[in-house]
Amino acid sequence: MSALRVCVEGVGLWSPRLGSFAALQALLRGTAPPPPSARPAAATLPPNERRRAPESVLLAVEVAGQAVAMSGRDAATLACVFASSHGDQATTDYMCRTLAQAPAELSPTRFHNSVHNAPAGYWTIATGCHAPSTAVAAQHASFGAGLLEAVTLALSERRPVLLVCSDTQGAGPLRKVTGCAQAFGCALLLSPTPGEATLARLALTLAPLRAATPLPEPLATWSDANASAAALPLLALLAAGHGGCALRAAATLELRIEMEDIA
């Protein structure tokens, strides 16, 4: 298989410690940035939707908005792939708790917010986007599988694609099972061709799974605390501007990623 080559035009990032890709760059340069506000701003959502939306939506919309803004592209035309290992864990916790106690009292709004594609739904509604949108999961390989889906879409259809990967903090008894101790979300704006907004060009190949790419602290700890933080090796690579990494893309596969010269 020849390498899949895509350009990165935007990067979004949100965690309780880092509110943007620039904050990660600062952290890796040795400057500890101030933490962001307690909830993702998700400014792309209209205020009434922002009040109603579950945390998974705020997180996904926040990082999506950052990546699209960096690229300068029009969100309304972008195909989008939303990946998450667990979906909205507070909603799942609410649903299962209510169903165990008083199923007839289940909230209709929280039910429709429970679908895995809730972030894709809110995002496309907020941006007036009629392009294809999807929502995927692959356990601890959700970022890699989502990246493969997004790159495949960008290259086969020759169109820019927004990739978002995010998981909320675990809630209730589910938290021990998912192991998500803190929220983490990131987004990439991927384009099949280089342009003025190109930040980096990546060459990706699928290969049998090997050992994970080691990460410096505190990234390694964060990576263990959220399934979507499996994206950190690539985000660190983008922050460094050179080198390579490997990300799990399925139980048996990894994506090997090399950064190439843009020229």
Partner: peptide
Amino acid sequence: LEGPCMTISTA
């Protein structure tokens, strides 16, 4: 199977 493996969950 050991190829790409993904769940699509769009309701």
